[in-house]
Design a protein around this nucleic acid. Structure first.
Lengths: 127, 127
DNA sequence: TGGGTACCTTACCAAGAAGTGGGTACCTTC
DNA sequence: GAAGGTACCCACTTCTTGGTAAGGTACCCA
């Protein structure tokens, strides 16, 4: 198993330096709403309205721009059905599923340990 | 293996909802500089000046505040030696290593695939 | 006396992220 | 004919993030 940045650089070169594409992609998928939208889509295909409800607190503006970004990056596929009323579905692409396979263990750990982490915050006076 | 948000919620409850601690912790570790600092520390203990060089482009202000946050969260330990000139060392705690164990596969995937992702961006007209 | 090193902190300000509120188009139902 | 559902887009404002620059300490060297 990979245990250090040096190890990654041995196979992928000088990644995560200034201006490196890896930093840009990192910013996209690690963004506040990006993670939550991707996470919601691990449950399967969702419509616009379902996503709004699933990702609590997101504004329509941010949902739209986050989806556009994820779509442009090839993580999410948008399918619109020319019906009335309009129906649009969003789902993870193969690339998106590959990504989430790696992100879910991290997210799972956060879900299980967030309480303890914030307790540490309180002790450190950063509540 | 975990494959969906629903699965995580089955064991951890209604996580990642609005105001949930999990969202706060996510914001800390998924922040622009947070990831890069944690990543740098997977190579071992580093001094202030070494971190500045390792995390290319970070300002002293952001390095300081990022380190304070990670320290408060219990991911990073700071050890200062009362010498002249002063020496301060930063390293991952056990919790930090646990976290990075889960983050490294994700980061590794990004390192290997960032090129393709940005190529998709160009085609989509989001260069 | 002046500079150099290492590790920061503070004050100020600009850019970008994100919230708010409105509008659009189309059809259905009341 | 008015209201409502679906999936947005745009303008305006606010708030957060992050950069710059300056200073601060505590010592050593010349």
């Amino acid at each position: 198993m990979t245990v250090s940045l040096a190890e990654i650089r041995r196979t992928s070169g000088e990644v995560f330096t200034e201006g490196c594409p890896t930093r840009v992609v990192l910013d996209h998928i690690m963004s506040k709403w990006g993670v939550l939208v991707l996470l919601a889509l691990t449950d399967g295909t969702l419509r616009w309205g379902e996503l709004r409800r699933e990702v609590e607190g997101i504004s329509e503006k941010m949902l739209a721009s986050t989806l556009r970004q994820l779509e442009a990056d090839g993580f999410v596929e948008r399918t619109s059905y020319p019906e009335v009323p309009p129906r649009v579905e969003y789902e993870l692409t193969d690339r998106g599923r590959e990504l989430m396979e790696r992100m879910l263990p991290l997210v799972e750990w956060v879900a299980a340990n967030a309480g303890d982490v914030l307790k540490a915050d309180l002790i450190a006076g950063r509540g």
